[in-house]
Each structure stands twice: as C-alpha cells, then as structure tokens.
Design a binder for these strands. Structure first.
Lengths: 269, 269
DNA sequence: ACTTATTATGTTTATTTGACACAATAAAGG
DNA sequence: CCTTTATTGTGTCAAATAAACATAATAAGT
C-alpha cells in the first residue's frame, strides 16, 4: 500500500513550475480524507521527505478550476480514485498559520526550499513565503479502492488512525480536529455508509463505523432494529470467514432510499 | 433607521484607494446579518446607488487582519455595533460568480465603474475585474441596537424580511440561501435567543423566532414547558402593552446556563 | 455433538413528542 | 365590579422513541 518516490524526477519541477504560473495566488486547498479500515477511522496523510512531520494532501487552485474540481484532482493524484465524495467545511486563514508558526513547519519549509531547484527559487519564495488562506474539504473514500501515492514533497502516503495522529505541519492538526467535529455533527446528513464502506459490508462494520465517528458504544440490537427500519439496506450472501460460527450476512446500500434519507437527515443522533 | 449618503465624499475614494493597496488580492468577505423584527426574521441589505439591485454587506481582507476581525469591522461600519456575534459558514468560489454572471451584476458593475474616479480606474479594474473568492459569515444581531449605514456604493442600508428578498448582485441570493440553511441546521448550537433578541423579551417572541428559523409552527404549551425545563431563562417584570389582557412576562437569558447548553446543543430539533 | 457468534425479536421502563384542553390570572374598558 | 381578552401554567393522553437487557433459533466449523 505504501509507495515511495525517494528520487524526485526533474520533470516534476518543470511541470509544477508551469502549473504555478496559473495558480490563484494566496489560496490553497487541503483535504481531510477519511477511510475506514481494520474497524477504525483513518485519515490519509503524507510523510514529508527526510522528516517525521506529516501533512494533509493539498494543493493550489488553478485560475480556471472550481475548488471542488481541483480538490477532486488532488485526491485523484493521491489515491488513483475518481469521483471521490467531498464537501467543503471550513476556510482557514489565521495570520498565525504560516510556515514560521512552529519549529516543525519551519523545518519542513527549509527542507522543501533546499530540495527546490535553484533556478525556481523565486517561484518558491513567491508561493511559500506569503500568507496562505486554505479552504479545507472533507472526503469520504472506500479505503480498499485506493492506492495512496506520495507527492513530490513527501516520501510516503499512508492511512493513519485518527486515534494515533503524528506531528503535523502548519495548522493541519487544527484542520483535522475541525473535520472530525464536522463529521460527527453532520453524521445524519453525510453519506457515511455509502462512501466509507466497501460495496458489501456486515452489520457490525456499519455499527463500528458509527461508533468510531460518534465516539461512543451503541447497543447492537437497537442499532440493528433502527437501521433495518430505515429500509436502506439490501441483504446479500453471507461472509464466510472460516470461523466456527454462523457467518454474518453481507449488506449493501440501497442508493435510491439512502440518498433520500440523508437529505432530511438519517436521524442517528 | 435609514440613512442616505447620496453625495459621495471624495475622501472616501482616497481612503479606499489607500486601503486597497493593503488588501489580500482575490479575497472578499460577505456577511449575512440576521435580525429579528416585527415578529419576523430579517437580513441587512444594501441598496446599490441608482439601481434596484441589492447586496450583502462585505469588503476585502487587509493583509494584516484576521478574517473574523475584518468581518467584525465591516459590520461595525454598517451597524455601529461592536462585538457582533459572527461565524464563518462557507467559502464561495465558483468561476461563474463574477460581475458578468448576470445582467443585474453587470449593470451594477458598470455603475460602480462609472462612479469611480478616473485616476483610480486601474485599481478598480485590478480589483473588480478578476476572479473573486468570498468567505461568507453569518452574523446575529439585536436589530434594536443597530443603526444601518450605507457604504460608498450604496444609497440605503435596510432590514429586509427573508420572505421578501429583492434582486441581488452576483451570487448573493445563493449565499443567503446557504446561510438560512446553516441557521436552520445549526439552530441547536447557535446563540439564537441571546444574540437576536432584545435583552428582555416575551415567551411568544422567543417562540416566533424559533418558528421563523425552523419554518414551522410550534405548540405554545409544549414550547413553554421545553424552554422552562432547560432553566435558561430569568423572569422579570411584565410588559405593559395597554391591551386589555394579562400582560406577558419579560424574560432574559441566563448566560451561564445558556452558554453551556449550546455547547452540546439545545436539543430543539 | 459441541462451541461459538450471528440474527432477529422480545421485554420493560423511562422519556419525549404532538395535539389538545382548561382553569386561574390579570389588564383594561365600561 | 363586571366583562372581555390574552397570558400562563398545567393537565391529559396516545403514540413514538430510547436505553438497557434478554433470549432463542440459526448455522459454521471442529
């Protein structure tokens, strides 16, 4: 699942240099990509080259692109997946969010600048040495359908459990915190089940997902009844795990019912 | 309540010209200011000079200001009130939201350009002829404590009922729609009662306010019981209206209880 | 046959919601 | 002081929901 680009290709910079000329100045995009794996909630993070500092996937806004469109492109580059569900949730603009906001960010900044080709340093300074406003998106993806791919500034792209977040650049920790709050408070209106789970999933998977987002345990019997009453699931064959017990059924989302449900709120909290 | 600045002062332009040089390019702020008056929800709107087109109060972002801080300043200029409650709710960035998005906006644009002093036209074009990203805020104010004041591009600043919105420039109609949705879906977490009502108010006023935001009627008895159980109100003397009936009590918010309540959601929907 | 976890339903209690009703209260007018 | 009127606080009652447990049938594997 982990790919490394330890040798940076020169062409990366040339294409970036060309792209930079078309970017809207002062604006960046950051994506908090949620995935569900091993019974817990994960976020997609990039490990900055030669450091132990991590960052959210992000990028700049081309002058002729819509924000959502570009966030989608960034995610496609980082995951290989198209048509990822995403929604804007906040714009971070604090004067204190720059590269000199803490030693970690400053270190990463110096590193990035040192890697940067000499002839393009003016561009670097133009872009990274000014105030940045960042519009942040929440994305929900099926972790199984995704191939995390680092960008030119990172050496790894990994799913990290939200309970074990590493040190992060800039205000990315704040952004993630706000995204988690957004996920929790908007759980009734977001296509949690549809986007975060595999095509087919067990009832327990759905329940544990809700538990992970809400941060509390739910009663199995009551959860089962509530979900079934919503009529949003289609039941399929069983999942044979090899364990010596009755195999759990697999379910999938009935999109027609589900899409209607989350418009008015699924009514779970 | 209505003030007119039909003659624009030349100094307005000079100070604007100076300010413009310090603005972050490409970013603007818009405020959807909610007020409660005559038993219905209102929004503060500016009537553009010599036209029947209206706009939200807004402005640009000085390079050394926080967004919230500047939104606060804009509101102080439009209302005379300090320390207005506001919260960011969305950033609008569509490529289609420019001055040429519809005939109304184009007309307003031409008007603004014609009023603009000739010697500053380059600045005008630099600022108004490019793509704009606008971060929008919801503000809640006590309409009684406010003196609506037009800016240099408008001839009036008025409270307009949300049920009777006029024609608006750019995508301001979309912004208002989104703000109303935000208000409705976050009603449990916003200091509705505290910020929108007068210091002292009657129970019916509080109820009608909730009804206006939720867009549906509530049962008086049940509403009364629910509110009283929350322990968030202090009862005061009666409001003598002169009508031949028992005068209603006045209430005020118990801030200590209320602030705690809206953290976890007041539980009204 | 035995162990185990899944599935579907049952039970019980407490709480909430919605809709409607009613009597006591008090302000003002005659 | 009597009448009119709207406010206030409470009553009621059915239906729905929530929360916490419990249980029996089922079936996969050993």
């Amino acid at each position: 699942m982990l790919k490394r680009h330890n040798k940076m290709k020169e062409t990366d910079f040339y294409s970036l240099e060309n792209k930079i000329k078309t970017f809207v100045p002062g604006i960046s995009l950051d994506c908090v990509v949620f995935g569900y794996q091993d019974r817990s909630l994960h976020i997609l993070l990039l490990k900055c080259r030669n450091t132990d500092v991590w960052a959210l996937p992000g990028g700049f806004l081309p002058a002729n692109s819509e924000m959502e469109e570009e966030a989608c492109n960034i995610l496609e580059e980082r995951t290989g997946a198209k048509n990822i569900y995403l929604t804007q949730f906040y714009t971070f603009s604090s004067l204190k969010r720059g590269w000199n906001c803490n030693e970690l960010s400053a270190k990463t900044f110096r590193l990035a600048r040192s890697i940067w080709p000499k002839e393009f340093l003016p561009t670097f300074d133009l872009w990274f040495n000014q105030r940045f406003i960042s519009t942040a998106f929440v994305a929900l993806v099926d972790a199984k359908k995704v191939t995390p791919t680092p960008d030119f500034i990172s050496e790894a792209c990994l799913w990290v459990p939200v309970k074990e977040l590493p040190q992060l650049i800039l205000d990315h920790g704040v952004i993630i915190k706000k995204a988690l709050e957004y996920l929790r408070t908007r759980i009734n209106y977001l296509p949690i089940g549809k986007e975060l789970l595999d095509e087919k999933f067990t009832m327990i998977d759905l329940q544990v997902l809700y538990e992970a987002i809400l941060g509390k345990q739910l009663d199995r019997g009551n959860f089962y009844r509530k979900i079934m009453k919503l009529n949003m699931l289609k039941r399929h064959e069983k999942l044979m795990t090899g364990a010596q017990n009755k195999a759990p059924y697999l379910y999938s989302i009935d999109n027609k019912v589900y899409d209607q449900l989350i418009i008015n709120g699924i009514g779970f909290i």
